[in-house]
Design a protein around this nucleic acid. Sequence first.
DNA 1: GTTATTTTGTGACATTCGTCACAGCCGGAT
DNA 2: ATCCGGCTGTGACGAATGTCACAAAATAAC
Lengths: 187, 187
Amino acid sequence: MHALSTFIDGLSGLSARGWELLQPALSELAYKKNDYLLKTGQVCDALFFISRGYCRAFYDKDGQEINTDFFFENEIATSINSFGQGVPSVFSIQACENLSVVRFDKRRLFEAAAQSTEIETLGRKCLQRIAAKQEKHAAMFKIMNATERYAYMTAHFPEILQRVSLTQLSSYLGLARETLSRIRAKR
Amino acid sequence: MHALSTFIDGLSGLSARGWELLQPALSELAYKKNDYLLKTGQVCDALFFISRGYCRAFYDKDGQEINTDFFFENEIATSINSFGQGVPSVFSIQACENLSVVRFDKRRLFEAAAQSTEIETLGRKCLQRIAAKQEKHAAMFKIMNATERYAYMTAHFPEILQRVSLTQLSSYLGLARETLSRIRAKR
DNA sequence: GTTATTTTGTGACATTCGTCACAGCCGGAT
DNA sequence: ATCCGGCTGTGACGAATGTCACAAAATAAC
């Protein structure tokens, strides 16, 4: 739980009472590599705080898997659309390594938030961070070409480069594996 | 203000007291076509609820303007990164038509939220909607090619097609104006 | 240590897309 | 009516990217 409390302190913090109210919503879970945290078609009823390992969100386009996101330690993995609107998720979330997570149960989280403004604020800040990540990521595709996108990733998210295979990374950057390989070959 | 109250009711609603607390944060403003709501480099200290007209967010890539977003009636326009983190915005927001907006002042909004959980909840729901929009939009670039992106827009956001010129739309879809013109020519 | 399996690199070629140039069209201003 | 500016379409051509095929390298499994 230590990683989680550091994460929460970085957002807006919680009083002792806030923590107490939050407890019923939390559970520590372990996933094995390739296990699913969420499958396409399911309604996402939880947030997953990643404490160790990493996972990916991917979309199945007639048999071909396209990665739409990666979640590393101290990030929240979820489908915003599914979680927020209560609709089936259009993508899956799968562990890429053995994974330790803290699961936030949606129903219990909302109950806790209803009793404590602190927790409501925490949820807002968390969403703010997710929205900001998506805003930047969406802009990347409009502003940059393939070479620039790769350079941007190496400059701003070197961790992803180190831990994710190029095969997995290519679809996240919106290009073919071979193209990414050739971009890297040019210096 | 009627459009705003309908919008808020659609999120989570507000009691009479909530409305009263929110008032000091709100101001009705009019922008003329081509006026700026936010300029690159400024810190965004407000949310803009669009009640009439529409505006665009665009990034300046060495002289060339690239549209990253459009905001129509009953949407919230802002830079999440700048507003949330208090950092200078990397893009501008500009009126594409004469515009009527309700401005939410950041400082006063936070004061109101501190006094009322309702308003805090409203902020969270609003962010949730923005995050969901970005999540879908970012996925579009990874999952679809140019032709599919255009077809997706016509199917899901016909309003944008009707009101935004193809010249403006092309950069939003991540392609050259001429390419969009040719995609349309093929049936 | 050896064998599978996965990952990465590379060549050949087709397709898509961007860039430049120019023409036609439309609407607003005078 | 005329002019002007912005928007859209189109041709020509080169650059970028995708696809298919296969080999080399790295990693995992036994």
